[in-house]
Computed example of a mutant assay.
Amino acid sequence: MDEDRTAGVLLGLACGDALGRPIEFETPARILAQYGEVTEMLANGTWGKPAGTVTDDTDMALCLARSLVDCGGFDPDDVAERFVAWYDAGPFDVGNMTAKALSRIRDGESWETASQRVWEESPEGSNAGNGSVMRAPPLAVALADDHSQLVEASETSSRITHADPRCTAGCAVLNLTLAGLLVGRADPLSDALGWLDPTAALDDALRPVVTGDLDPSTLRSTGYVVDTLQTALWHGLHADSPERALVDVVNMGGDADTVGAVTGAVVGARFGASALPERWLAELDGRSELRALATRLATR
């Protein structure tokens, strides 16, 4: 695999996360009034952090990447332990389903039981969040040449905190698409949908991204995994540059950091790390470790 593209997956994810972090939860109108079009890493904003600060999206992707490297492969028990340790350290941003599942794991439940119960107890509308797809891309780098193993690991990784079938299938679709980009497939999302035969909700939302039969004005930046994938894959696969894709999605506001992170992984795999704006990378937290982990994942 091309080293520039593998580095692009993790660095793109972190760039989208950090670019969207200051304007998370804002509306497009409020973003425009306060900042104009956001094209730079901003300080302060929603979480009051320095420019280039990443959130739980990148933090949890780093937990997964470090586990893959240290364990020599995917070990869900080790990943769950790392997630709990990260959660116990008191991150400033953590999703509701993630927090509920990790709290139960910390209190002694197995991750399988914890996430299943959280899902069963969550009403429709709050049971299929994007908290597992945002962290999934390290698996695509590590397992790009083994689709069966990549699907199994992606679905299992999701189930540590997000057991809804839309979430598990969403992680697999995203990672199959990233893997396809990394190995040079011409139509990676179409291949991913054909390989996985995902749930109808995902297929109905993502098939128009393949065909181009989609009105971009209908895209949404929310915490719902289907919205996140539809928006991120449309912009990630159709934009003419990583900068254009990420500027467009984060300025939608809403769940700007997570939609930015997923879009960033896609454009990173598509264009490579060298196509990411250097001015963004210069301010990005953890850029050296992200690049080093990508190299180790791709060569493990």
Rank of each mutant, 00 (worst) to 15 (best):
M1E: 07
D2W: 02
E3H: 13
D4V: 07
R5T: 05
T6E: 06
T6G: 04
V9A: 05
V9F: 07
V9D: 05
L10Q: 05
G12K: 13
G12F: 09
C15P: 14
D17S: 15
A18T: 06
E26I: 00
E26K: 05
P28E: 01
A29Q: 13
Q34P: 01
Q34N: 06
G36H: 05
M41W: 09
W47E: 02
K49T: 08
P50G: 01
A51E: 02
G52C: 03
T55F: 04
D57E: 00
A61S: 04
L62V: 06
C63K: 00
R66Q: 04
S67M: 03
S67T: 05
G73V: 10
G73T: 04
F74H: 14
P76F: 11
V79R: 03
A80P: 06
A80H: 00
E81S: 15
E81P: 00
R82G: 10
Y87N: 09
D88R: 14
V94T: 13
G95A: 12
N96Y: 11
M97Q: 15
K100I: 06
K100H: 12
R106M: 04
D107I: 07
E109T: 12
E109S: 15
E112S: 14
S115C: 12
V118S: 10
W119N: 13
E121Q: 15
A128W: 15
G129K: 09
N130T: 06
S132H: 05
V133S: 07
V133L: 13
P138R: 03
V141S: 02
A142Y: 09
A142T: 06
D146V: 12
H147P: 15
Q149I: 08
L150N: 09
T156E: 14
S158P: 04
S158R: 08
R159H: 08
A163E: 02
R166F: 01
C167N: 07
T168Q: 09
G170N: 05
A172C: 02
T177M: 12
T177A: 12
V183W: 08
R185P: 04
A186V: 04
D191E: 13
A192R: 14
A192T: 12
G194Y: 11
T199R: 15
A200Y: 09
L202D: 14
P208W: 02
V209P: 10
T211Y: 02
G212P: 10
T218I: 12
T218H: 04
R220M: 10
R220Q: 13
T222D: 07
T222V: 13
T222W: 07
T222R: 11
T222Y: 08
V225S: 08
H235W: 15
G236L: 12
L237W: 09
H238M: 13
D240I: 09
D240P: 12
S241C: 02
S241Q: 04
S241V: 07
A245D: 11
V250F: 10
A256V: 08
A256Q: 06
D257K: 12
A261I: 04
G264H: 01
A265L: 07
V266D: 11
G268N: 14
A273G: 03
P277L: 01
E278M: 00
R279A: 12
L281T: 00
L284H: 14
R287L: 00
S288T: 03
A292Y: 01
A294Y: 00
R300M: 03
